[in-house]
């Protein structure tokens, strides 16, 4: 009975798509690395640019308001209903499905780059009670100064003077905001969004860059950054974590996304 209901449910999107142009989408897949190595929570031991050894226990951040750039410089910006939180995505290394996000309603065509906000925009950051990725129950909300934590990186390092050798970086808030716009050009290639072809953009996000890209950070000197003043040097580093690793296209399955 249950299985039959599920089957019918699974068929519904297919049925609904009949008779009109299927909605096209693009997918973003994220892999976390440290330097050249894949990130393994708690188990991997890495070194930052200053030579300090560290592990990563928690990595979470918001990717918001994605948009795709066309070759002529114009943008495709997905439109969402006013109350919707679909434009906000919480990436959590501990949750595999959170490392994949989908941009829906993309018009067919070629796109040369992607832009998103690392963090939450002021309008939503200063809003009231919200749901979905912005539900305070997700554990990314501050109450000592209400607003979202844009990025969390926590782990241990023998260099940290904090109890348990822990280090904790919580980026959020700030005036001006610590949220950063990140634009990633696809380079010589571009992605094609077509009825028969679905593109996937693979991003490699280097946690090592968070400690060194623009403002080098020593865990020994900064075991904790839990407020916007302390975390400001990290915000520019965070924006530099992202790069396009590779693109690929595969045939779209009929009826599916």
């Amino acid at each position: 009975m249950k299985r039959a209901a599920l089957l019918i449910l699974a068929m519904l999107p297919g049925l609904a798509a009949c008779g009109r142009a299927p909605e096209l989408d693009a997918e973003i897949d994220i892999s976390h690395v440290v330097g050249g190595e894949p990130l393994r929570l708690d188990e991997g031991h890495y070194r930052n640019a200053a030579g300090e050894e560290f592990t990563v226990g928690r990595l979470r951040y918001y990717l918001s308001l994605p948009r795709l750039r066309r070759a002529d410089g114009s943008w495709f910006e997905p439109r969402y209903p006013a109350e919707s939180v679909d434009a906000y995505h919480l990436v959590d290394e501990a949750k595999a499905d959170s490392r994949r996000l989908r941009i829906g309603g993309v018009p067919a065509g070629e796109y040369v780059g992607i832009e998103f906000l690392l963090g939450v925009d002021d309008a939503r950051n200063h809003g009231g009670a919200q749901t979905g990725a912005l539900d305070p129950a997700r554990g990314m909300f501050w109450t000592w100064k209400s607003g979202y934590i844009f990025l969390v990186l926590e782990g241990t390092s023998p260099e940290s003077p904090a109890p348990g050798g822990r280090y904790s970086y919580h980026l959020g808030g700030g005036e001006p905001s610590l949220a950063r716009r990140v634009y990633l050009p696809f380079g010589e290639r571009s992605i094609r969004v077509e009825e028969r072809v679905k593109p996937t953009v693979h991003l490699a996000v280097d946690v090592g860059a968070l400690l060194s890209a623009v403002n080098p950070v020593r865990i020994a000197q900064l075991p904790e950054a839990m407020d916007p003043v302390a975390a400001r040097p990290l915000a520019d580093n965070a924006a530099a974590m992202f790069r396009v690793d590779h693109l690929h296209h595969e045939p779209r399955r009929r009826g599916g996304g």
Binding site: H126, G127, G128, A129, P136, F141, T143, W144, K145, S146, G147
Partner: peptide
């Protein structure tokens, strides 16, 4: 003035 919106106020004592 830690909390900017009345709706979010209960989160502070709840989680403290």
């Amino acid at each position: 003035g830690a909390i900017h919106d009345l709706e979010l106020q209960p989160l502070a004592p709840l989680g403290n």
